[in-house]
Nucleic acid binder design. Structure first.
Lengths: 310, 310
DNA sequence: TTGAAAGCGCTAACAA
DNA sequence: TTGTTAGCGCTTTCAA
């Protein structure tokens, strides 16, 4: 017990004893056994992050910011990639639960959760971007981008565009639906006619957006485009650059997300910028201290329209 | 014991008993206690990844690939960001050691390790890209890019360039030194004169490369550039695009790494492409099965010159 | 200030 | 096939 007390910094140890213990422990290369401490009931200071992937610009930046915040809070961060697959998600939650992770930040996979609810016992659960009610999370951290997306339409209209297309994520996702609606709101606010044939939603893949926008350029059905997704924005941009649409043909474009090269590609890209770092810090704050009385259940962060190509 | 046996799939349990146990466990929402199993001496199936950061294109892709490989191998992946700081690195290793991680893949921080060697007891240690001898790792996974870099010079010479600059990482890093040497070898192979004034090495930051290349464009001291680092390549590219050097002035450029937009930016960028996924799979393979008799200590992966702007 | 006992949940070894 | 015992390393409680 004296050794234990010396090692954990308990005050009731004679200084000479403590020093001797510490010195000897160091000599022997002693390291605490986290499993034994956990078994006694302590926190593990391990938190999980469940992401569909980590190549998407948003996820990569979020993972980075969260990893940084975790270092600061001396939490260990376990990353699981789910591929948006409910089964993988359930497995990942189970494994985190087994090691008694203190909490988990997750982008819930779309669709219904697996029957037989996932094991999240004793973990603080924070939903990110998307959310789901079965089982309900402890907290939810969301992006509010409707004003920025409507603003994107206004921006393009101000530049003289009237046939504006939209490429966004699947309307099966709550976020996909909300963004498409925001786009339509922007269209109406500008007194433009509804053009459902210029609204493209589907899988949020780079290749999908690439081929859709390539076709759009061929037909010439629109002179401008708003994107409602990170990967989609990359795919659209690829098509636009290959067709030399931005500089050459004055095609209007507002991207989604803000990878560093958006600032210098073309003449600089106007884009819907998401405050990734504040999101991550809040998420970690909720995990580190879930019982703060000031804690709201839902936390909203506002995306802003970053104007560049004026 | 019967319950334990039923739960772990031990054969000596009557089918009826096993089914009853499993059913009841499910009803109760039972989850295994990983801490207790670990204390009994089992593997934790947790592995660590120590990276300077995760915004750098290589690290981000490596983390992604390794996370994927870990899902496949049902390993849990803990990511620690070190910022190339030896102290943070030592702390991270200690925490992984405390939870008895099975192994760790790390990019060792440059410079001497902290006195009082880091706690890596019982962990398989794999060094990535860089390596260090104190303490020696169990394995080392390295990139062999000298031929690709020399090839980059040859490529630019074939396009008619004779004043070729190099922007690379600090020569204090083993990798930085090796790449600069490879560049010089390429210069000599082309029978060009040594031009130490066109070789820039220093901190591998985007901003550093950006300002160096901006200045280079102003002076006009070179007509082409080879990059020897991921972040540097991004910074150089930013300066080149802003100065409209690639398309407008026919400036020659070979980048480093292969983020997706290199394929469609400008006319497509020739670049030194690193086989990130194979690296990650090998690293995970070594962690998952360190005692394979076929295992080499050092594993080299060859970077290739991806020709695009011909 | 120091120490003895007990128990966290699990499973290897042995016994029935 | 099922059950008993013991011990992994730690810290809380209580006693010296």
């Amino acid at each position: 017990m004296t050794v234990s007390r010396a090692l954990t910094g308990h005050p009731n140890v004679q200084k000479a004893t403590r020093d001797a213990v510490l010195r000897r422990a160091h000599e022997l290369g002693y390291v605490r056994n986290a499993a034994a401490r956990t078994m006694r009931g302590g926190r593990t200071r391990i938190v999980g992050l469940l992401l569909p992937n980590i190549v998407n610009e948003f996820y990569a930046r979020f993972a980075n910011a969260m990893a940084l915040a975790c270092e600061d809070a001396s939490l260990q961060l376990i990353i699981h990639l789910t591929g948006d697959d409910p089964e993988t998600e359930t497995m990942a939650l189970a494994r985190l639960s087994e090691i008694q992770a203190d909490g988990v930040v997750m982008v819930p996979a779309p669709g219904a959760p697996l029957p037989g609810q996932p094991a999240t016992a004793n973990m603080t659960v924070v939903h990110l971007i998307r959310t789901r009610d079965t089982p309900p999370p402890d907290f939810s951290v969301q992006i509010e981008d409707d004003k920025a997306i409507a603003g994107a339409v206004a921006h393009l209209v101000a530049k003289g565009h009237s046939r504006i297309a939209y490429v966004g994520a699947d309307q099966a996702l709550s976020s996909g639906r909300a963004r498409a609606t925001a786009f339509q709101k922007g269209i109406r606010a500008a007194n433009l006619p509804d053009t459902p044939e210029l609204i493209f939603t589907g899988d949020a893949t780079l290749d999908g957006a690439y081929s859709q926008v390539s076709r759009l350029l061929e037909t010439g059905a629109a002179t401008a485009l708003v994107c409602g997704g990170f990967e989609l924005s990359s795919g659209a941009l690829k098509a636009l650059m290959e067709g030399d649409a931005l500089r050459g043909k004055g095609f209007g474009f507002v991207g989604y997300g803000d990878p560093s090269f958006y600032s210098w590609i073309g003449n600089g890209l106007t884009t819907v910028a998401v405050p990734v770092e504040p999101l991550a810090r809040r998420a970690v704050g909720l995990l580190a201290d879930p019982d703060q009385p000031s804690n709201q259940k839902t936390h909203r962060f506002t995306a802003t329209l970053r104007l560049r190509d004026q």
